[in-house]
Write a protein that binds this DNA or RNA. Structure first.
Length: 667
RNA sequence: GCGCCCGUAGCUCAGUUGGAUAGAGCGGCGGUUUCCUAAACCGCAGGCCACAGGUUCGAAUCCUGUCGGGCGCACCA
């Protein structure tokens, strides 16, 4: 089903072009209107008034004269300064919904069409550091990323989920170093031990400087493939991976081992990638690089070299190298210290990318460090390598291709991480663009790189969500508590159900409540975690939507019981929208495809939540006002059953397929 | 200090990218059940959209400044 706004935008564009010429029809300003006035409105007349120097109401009149929408809408009304208000004809609505209800394939998709040109989209989410147990800090990334991935996949894109686990960083140096002393190699510790184990290592790292140095060294050894370090690392990683798998399953997050590609995967690519980057950036920074290498002295703690403008021509830079004094003169002439073009350089022993627009607290150029002074690589290096891998690399092995069986050449890459990493991703993206590694190898267009940031989880006191003792809450414990709280309520509300049934409802409701509470809010803001709010079972909550869905199912169970001879096939029959509640519900159902489209465009699952909540409200209103099984006539009964069927389908698609929340036919 | 994000009802949040009298839920007050799940529905009260300017037909939304909060700013991720 084509979103109504799309059709309307087209029709108004045509009308404006016909009335005033195509040059005025760029944006017809279609909005969904205040229900008091209109279903939709076109607000183009006011803006056109200035360009055409005619009164806006006159312009609105001309637009309406050229408009042909009477197949879908009643006669447009001009109101206020020049709003053009339109209302959908119930007759048109009926036709749309009728064809939706009777087409099984379309019904199963809630009327949402697949895109005509699918893209390869990488969604990078979850990404726990597997040196320790998953905690609440990983919750939002997993839930939000999963919903974004589901939504894009539902629309027909080729979604490549990537769980970019931290399995190769500095923490592993600590753990490996610690493992050497504790003789744990031969044992098979459980995951709960690993968390405590991490704490011990971390403690030693903080208090023992020698340990800390050796821990850094262990990272280098791991990254260079020393067998002893690698063996210890594998043991820790495998233990942790099992734990993550369980939690993803519990959460209903669609990540499998085939989607896991951690930092370690890129380890053999990093050195080559760095060399490759030197070549790619030499374009803008050759002269600077020559200057940097020579000018820098290890003893120089305030490297004025950063003042060098990369575009400074090589001859000048090379000539300057003949005397340190001459170099200094050039450098001083280059003040104030601003990076004009991206360039690569060594600074204080670390290999850095310098980019325009990034300064540190002393107003000095802020580097993106891609190789530490001790030779180790860091997350920026891995992120760059991963980006190259995802867009540019031709893949040879099945291992490299998974989870697909072909090259990726991604068109769009989405990172669902904490908003605190915004600057990091901005720098990584800028670096990729400077190297022109964002140019799609087939289409030649720039790949869309997006950071979809989210805020922190706060406790009810407004401070970061922690346990009473100040530690981060373990994800497993959080989910267990959600299920336990839900179980209590289920036992109270639905004592007639079997214990097994109650337990499975409690699982779905508890986990669903946690997920929905997170998804319903705009991800960019911080989010206040509250058991009472998410499990209150009232208002805009997961349980309320699950309950609404369960009620739609209940109708069909009853309908079947009423007429045992007739198989329940409510997807046939004639739809008629008569009661205002029926019309309101029908109108809402037709908006679904447009909402899904916006949610995918802006990567905002809360658009979907808001819609489903409104839909649930419309359905409840309909439920109260329009008896279905006891409808006054057989015609009304079968028509209303059709409405229930569509509502049921849309709720199922929204909750299960898009948000990743389990649906229940009975609660 | 510099940069990014934020400030909307007592609380938690929407506000479709500049449109009409700013909307929900919770909490508060009041109502609805011989009837398909009352985990529901209906109604009432509650606002200087932090503050001050500016831009224009029109601002919660855009620009500037102020106040208040969060986060980030060189070898952690």
């Amino acid at each position: 089903m084509l979103p109504i706004e799309v059709t309307l935008r087209l029709r108004f564009t045509q009308a404006i072009a016909a009335a005033f010429g195509a040059e005025f029809s760029a944006d017809p300003q279609i909005k969904s209107g205040d229900p008091k006035f209109a279903d939709y409105q076109c607000n183009a007349a006011m803006g056109l008034s200035r360009l055409l120097s005619r009164p806006p109401r006159e312009i609105a009149g001309k637009i309406v004269d050229h408009l042909s929408i009477d197949d879908m809408f009643d006669t447009p009304q001009i109101a206020g300064p020049g709003f053009i208000n339109v209302r959908i004809k119930p007759g048109w609505l009926t036709g749309e919904l009728q064809s939706l209800a009777t087409n099984a394939g379309e019904l199963a998709r809630g009327g949402v069409d697949q895109v005509s040109v699918p893209q390869a989209v990488v969604v990078d989410y979850a990404g726990p550091n597997i040196a320790k147990e998953m905690h609440v800090g990983h919750l939002r990334s997993a839930i939000i990323g999963d919903s974004i991935a589901r939504t894009l996949a539902f629309l027909g894109h080729v979604v490549i989920r990537q769980n970019h686990v931290g399995d190769f960083g500095t923490q592993f140096g600590m753990l490996i170093r610690h493992a050497r002393d504790t003789a744990m190699q031969g044992t098979e510790p459980r995951i709960t031990d690993l968390d405590a184990y991490y704490k011990q290592a971390s403690q030693r790292d903080k208090s023992d400087p020698e340990f800390a140095i050796q821990a850094r060294q262990a990272v280098v050894e791991l990254q260079q493939g020393y067998p002893e370090a690698v063996r210890l690392w594998r043991w820790i990683r495998d233990e942790s991976r099992r734990h993550c798998r369980e939690l993803f399953a519990m959460l209903g997050v669609q990540l499998t081992d085939a989607d896991e590609r951690g930092e370690s995967f890129y380890k053999d690519r990093l050195a080559a990638m760095v060399e490759h980057l030197k070549g790619a950036l030499a374009f803008g920074g050759d002269g600077a690089r020559v200057g940097m290498d020579k000018v820098f002295h290890p003893s120089d703690t305030s490297p004025r070299i950063l003042a060098v403008e990369p575009a400074a021509d090589s001859a000048q830079a090379k000539g300057a190298l003949e005397s340190v004094e001459a170099v200094d003169r050039i450098l001083e002439a280059a003040a104030p210290l601003v990076v004009q073009k991206p360039f690569l350089a060594e600074s204080e022993g670390a290999l850095c990318v310098f980019l325009p627009g990034y300064v540190d607290k002393d107003k000095k150029p802020l580097p993106l460090i891609i190789r530490k002074s001790d030779g180790a690589f860091l997350y920026a290096t891995t992120d760059l390598a991963a980006l190259y891998f995802r867009v540019q690399e031709d893949k040879n092995t099945a291992e490299d291709k998974r989870p697909l069986d072909c090259n990726w050449h991604a068109h769009r890459i989405i990172y669902t991480t904490d908003s605190r990493q915004a600057q990091h991703f901005a720098m990584v993206f800028d670096t990729i663009r400077a190297a022109r590694w964002d140019i799609h190898p087939q289409s030649g267009a720039a790949v869309k790189l997006e950071h979809a940031p989210f805020g922190s989880i706060l406790g009810e006191d407004g401070k970061p969500f922690k346990t009473r003792s100040g530690e981060s809450v373990k994800l497993r414990e959080l989910l267990d508590e959600a299920v336990a709280r839900a179980a209590k309520i289920v036992a109270e509300k639905s004592p007639h159900l079997s214990p097994e049934k109650q337990a499975s409802i409690a699982r779905a409701v508890g986990v669903g409540a946690v997920k929905y509470a997170d998804l319903r809010q705009d991800r960019t803001g911080d989010y206040a975690f509250s058991w009472d709010r998410m499990l209150s079972f009232e208002g805009n909550t997961g349980p309320y939507l699950q309950y609404t869905y369960a009620r739609t199912c209940s109708i069909f169970r009853k309908a079947a019981a009423d007429q045992p001879a007739v198989p329940p096939s409510p997807a046939v029959g004639e739809l008629r929208l008569e009661h205002p509640r029926e019309i309101a519900l029908g109108r809402r159902l037709c908006q679904f495809s447009g909402v899904v489209e916006s949610a995918a465009r802006d990567l905002k699952p809360h658009f979907i939540c808001g819609f489903l909540y409104d839909l649930a409200g419309d359905f409840s209103g309909f439920w109260e006002a329009c008896p279905v099984l006891r409808a006054p006539s057989e015609a009304a009964r079968s028509s209303r059953l059709l409405l229930c069927r569509i509502t049921q389908a849309v709720l199922a698609v929204g909750l299960r397929d898009l948000l990743g929340i389990e649906i229940l036919d009975e609660m």
